[in-house]
């Protein structure tokens, strides 16, 4: 009698099986939601699966996607977000336009270098002095924005198509309108950014170090990783992606102005976080970020096709944002992979 009781007691009633739903959610992540929208899309409107519409979707988010890939590295390193992205974008664009008389190649290089210099400052201060990333990049955003308004606010600069540097100017303007075969150059750049970003994150030594730094900076320090350098490179990548995005945006609007990147900071963070990169750092991947970016584009497109007014759209976007991230975090918690 007693032994039977003991046997019963010994039996472990705790479930060892992982929650299947949570497992799938954590594996596929954002692409479940993207898939749902791809199924709902044609039901909503027959126009959804036309080539023109799909191109429109990609075109609205291509630059955002490039920027988001960069910001993902900062988020992955456990530093929330790079809020200086809008200024870096505008700055890179302005510098490129301002130096167009040196020829297109040199001006592009100078534009990217200008963006990178901001990235170095961010990386140095946040990496070495451990300043709070949100506040520091916010301060940089303010300073850079003020500077650009001060210097170029009164006289906005634009690529002068009919001036002395007409050829350089026209090739700069064509940059965002360039096609490689049937595919726009921006799309190719976006997919290149995603593939290269994913490879850097998962295949290189830097990527693995970044994962350790993102998971726990203290552990990384004691395992001999150069933490400030790793964080610095993450910010540098963010600035690099932002400058490329900014140059394309400037080429698209044909005007170098301080307000060019407005809104890209929070939109990029949205894409990154919806794409499954954890704000706590060290979890997520770049392919997910692409998914997050696509979701933003498809969402706006579907809402437009339904005929939802712009006023309702922001509300729907906000609700979906919170739900997606909430479900993702909950499933991670169920699997025991998140200590939040």
């Amino acid at each position: 009698m007693q032994s039977a009781n003991l046997d019963e007691l010994k039996k472990d009633s705790r479930s060892l099986e992982l929650n299947t739903l949570s497992l799938w959610i954590s594996k596929l992540g954002i692409f479940i939601v993207v898939g749902i929208f791809l199924i709902v899309g044609p039901l909503v409107s027959a126009k959804f699966y036309t080539l023109a519409n799909l191109t429109t979707i990609l075109q609205t988010v291509a630059i955002l996607g490039i920027v988001a890939v960069g910001v993902a590295f900062v988020t992955y390193s456990g530093h929330y977000a790079d809020l200086s992205v809008p200024s870096v974008m505008a700055f890179a664009g302005i510098i490129t336009v301002a130096t167009l008389h040196y020829g297109i190649a040199i001006s592009l290089l100078l534009g990217i270098l200008a963006g990178l210099s901001i990235g170095i400052i961010n990386g140095f201060v946040v990496g070495v002095y451990k300043a709070n990333p949100i506040i520091w990049t916010l301060a940089v955003e303010y300073v850079l924005n003020g500077l650009m308004r001060w210097i170029w606010g009164a006289n906005q600069i634009y690529p002068d198509l009919h001036g002395n540097n007409g050829r350089a100017a026209s090739s700069f303007v064509n940059l965002a309108r360039q096609y490689v075969g049937p595919i726009p150059l921006v799309f190719i750049l976006l997919f290149c950014a995603v593939i290269i970003g994913q490879l850097i994150l998962s295949k290189t030594r830097f990527g693995r170090r970044l994962k350790v730094v993102g998971s726990s900076a203290e552990v990384a320090k004691f395992s001999g990783i150069n933490v400030p350098l790793t964080i610095g490179i993450a910010f540098l990548i963010s600035a690099f992606a932002a400058s490329i995005g900014g140059i394309f945006l400037t080429s698209l609007v044909k005007l170098g102005v301080y307000s060019n990147g407005t809104g890209y900071d929070f939109n990029a963070v949205t894409a990154v976080v919806v794409g499954g990169v954890s704000l706590a750092g060290g979890r997520g991947n770049i392919v997910g970020v692409l998914g997050g970016t696509l979701l933003l584009g498809i969402l706006v497109n579907v809402l437009n096709l339904i005929g939802v007014s712009q006023l309702y759209q922001t509300i729907v976007e906000g609700v979906i944002f919170i739900i997606v991230v909430g479900v993702n975090q909950k499933s991670l918690r169920k699997l025991g992979r998140d200590d939040a």
């Binding site: 301060a139 940089v140 955003e141 300073v143 924005n145 003020g146 001060w150 606010g153």
Partner: peptide
């Protein structure tokens, strides 16, 4: 102007 104000608060 506005630009200097933004610049200074950032600084």
């Amino acid at each position: 102007g506005n630009s200097i104000q933004i610049l200074f608060s950032g600084l």
